[in-house]
Write a protein that binds this DNA or RNA. Structure first.
Lengths: 155, 155
DNA sequence: AAAATTTATTATGCATGCATAATAAATTTT
DNA sequence: AAAATTTATTATGCATGCATAATAAATTTT
């Protein structure tokens, strides 16, 4: 198992989680991405859509499309933000709240089961390694500064 | 940092790796997925396309589309498999080989830098947790057996 | 051997992420 | 205050993953 790369393991693991989340979400008529979005919306007050991107690690442009389809499906309503003429406030419909709870169950169950099968120390270490990876990338410690120069490595 | 869920950390980390890989790949005119595919193709002999899916953790149907675009871009050629009239053998073109080397550099660099910043023990543990997660999912230990029944949890 | 099943591939549609471009509304500079 | 810049949003195009359906070639059953 040590002959696989770190990226491969990460990708395979994330993809298997995503596949599972999507299958579960299908049972109640949504998708993983819709579920994540529902969970980022405050069920009580209007949520400015600007707050969703950072919370979910998504670009505003990706979100815009998801919000549009969620509105069409009757999960949310979008109202102009009275405090900012450019902005939008997101509200859950009762239907959206229902699906939010369903989504929450799936996420909680996954996290619970993993925690039951991994020691706290292992989990802390797991988070730490991911933080390290994220840090290395955001600090540009991995990007090649000289990709162009390296282009002929091989011949 | 402990207030984020396991799925969120995994997703964010994988996405940041993917974003970085795609930016790097853009420098030499490919994408991450194309790079992974190139790396799964044997540079010396024809690779049956059936072997790619399992190696890459992708559905044959997803691959088919990528292979098509790779052929159009001149990275590979597809020839009928003489041993199986249904199958196809993939060959790298010289151009494809070049891009394969570029892709390899990026993957090697990422893995190298991460290893320089994480102890071997931490890395082993990291792999172990991912194996556990994958195992739990493939053994269906996470899926709800009773999603339908749970649907009304909330009211 | 003929019929039924499985396997390999492709085409298509849908969802999702990114990038880019456009637009309108703030905000900051001058 | 007017001009320039930034910010929030949307539309669109491209890539990628999945699912489903269709087709042709093996393989297995009968």
């Amino acid at each position: 198992m040590k002959d696989i790369t770190i990226d491969y393991a990460l990708r395979a693991t994330w993809q298997s989680v995503a596949r599972m989340y999507n299958e579960e979400a299908k049972n109640f008529g949504t998708t993983m991405a819709v579920g994540f979005t529902l969970l980022s919306i405050d069920p009580k007050t209007g949520t400015p859509s600007t707050s969703l991107g950072p919370k979910m690690g998504m670009e505003a442009t990706s979100l815009s499309r998801i919000l549009k389809s969620m509105e069409e499906k009757g999960l949310i309503t979008r109202k102009p933000n009275p405090e900012d003429g450019r902005g939008v406030l997101i509200y859950l419909t009762p239907f959206g709240l229902e699906k939010r709870e369903d989504s929450k169950d799936v996420v909680l169950r996954f996290n619970e089961v993993v925690r039951q099968n991994v020691s706290e120390e292992e989990l802390n270490n797991f988070f730490k390694v991911m933080e390290t990876i994220n840090g290395l990338i955001s600090e540009k410690k991995i990007y090649s500064r000289n990709t162009k120069l390296n282009n002929n490595h091989h011949q």
